[in-house]
Computed example of a mutant assay.
Amino acid sequence: MSKRFGSLPNWWFRNEVLFSELRAHQTGEGIASMKCLLALSVLIDFYTKDVSVSITEIETITGLSRPMVIKGMVKLEYLGVISVDKNNYRNNYKLIVTKDDSRWAKVPSDMIRKQLKTISNRGTAPFVALKIYITLLSLRYKNEINVKISHEVIRNYTKVQPNQIRAGLDVLFSCSMIHLLPKEENTSNVYKLIGV
């Protein structure tokens, strides 16, 4: 039986390390990195933030090919988001927690295990979708299931072009990972995170 939530340390979200480095001209690598990060978040031990897992298991959750899983993990390690111990039969991955920022996002385990692989591994829209999804998870307050946020704020966090946001949101809508809730006039959109 899987746990209900994964734990995603996200200091890199607040200091913009990850999203500034995952750029639109390398969408494949960016998609792989974000999918691997979400997969690790639902596999790791809540307290130690590490897990011994095979590349095949990551492939199953993410829908990525073996070379792209490796590429995504290499990028995350290069950026200091994870550390990797390759001394055993199965690699041991640890999500890095910084001393000055130990906050984390709750990631819905069942949703990631079922739906992450349905997001395409190619193209700008899936790349933007994953950035938006991680942003919504990171901005969600405690046990709230809704996040109120404008397109401008999404753009500021994700570093994507304004005209790409709608396509990214459409990917998340079509995968049933989020819903857009009715809003009052002249207010920010409200997104419901499914599975949380």
Rank of each mutant, 00 (worst) to 15 (best):
P9T: 13
S150Q: 13
G30P: 00
K106A: 06
F46A: 05
T135A: 15
G30D: 12
T48K: 11
E29V: 14
I58T: 05
P162V: 04
T124F: 00
Y89L: 10
T62A: 06
I61E: 02
T135L: 11
S188M: 06
L137Q: 08
R23G: 01
T158L: 03
S41Y: 00
K192N: 14
R103A: 10
V69S: 14
D101S: 10
L95T: 01
E77A: 15
K159N: 11
C36H: 06
I145L: 10
A24I: 12
G28L: 00
R140P: 08
M111Q: 13
K71M: 09
L116W: 05
N156G: 03
R103L: 13
V160I: 12
F127G: 02
L130M: 10
V53N: 06
S2E: 15
A24S: 06
R155E: 15
Y191S: 10
I119G: 08
Y78Q: 14
N91P: 02
T48L: 12
S176I: 01
Y133C: 09
I194M: 06
K75D: 10
D45R: 11
I154F: 03
S33M: 08
Q115I: 01
K3E: 04
V74R: 12
I194H: 08
S150G: 09
M111A: 04
S150H: 13
M34P: 02
L79I: 07
D170W: 07
I55S: 12
L139Y: 09
L181I: 05
I145K: 15
A129G: 07
V107R: 03
F5S: 06
S52K: 09
V84H: 08
S138C: 13
R14F: 10
S102C: 11
F46C: 02
M177V: 13
Y157R: 14
A167F: 05
R103K: 07
E21G: 05
E59R: 02
I145Y: 15
V128N: 13
A129P: 00
T118D: 12
E185H: 07
E59W: 05
N143W: 11
S176P: 00
V107Y: 00
K114M: 05
N189A: 02
L180T: 08
G195L: 06
R113N: 03
N121P: 03
L8G: 01
G28Q: 10
E16T: 09
V171I: 12
T62L: 07
N87L: 06
K131Y: 04
K99G: 14
K114L: 14
A24P: 01
Q26T: 14
S83K: 09
C36Q: 11
L18R: 09
V190S: 11
G168N: 05
R4P: 01
R23P: 00
T135W: 03
K86H: 10
F19E: 00
E16G: 00
D100G: 08
K142H: 15
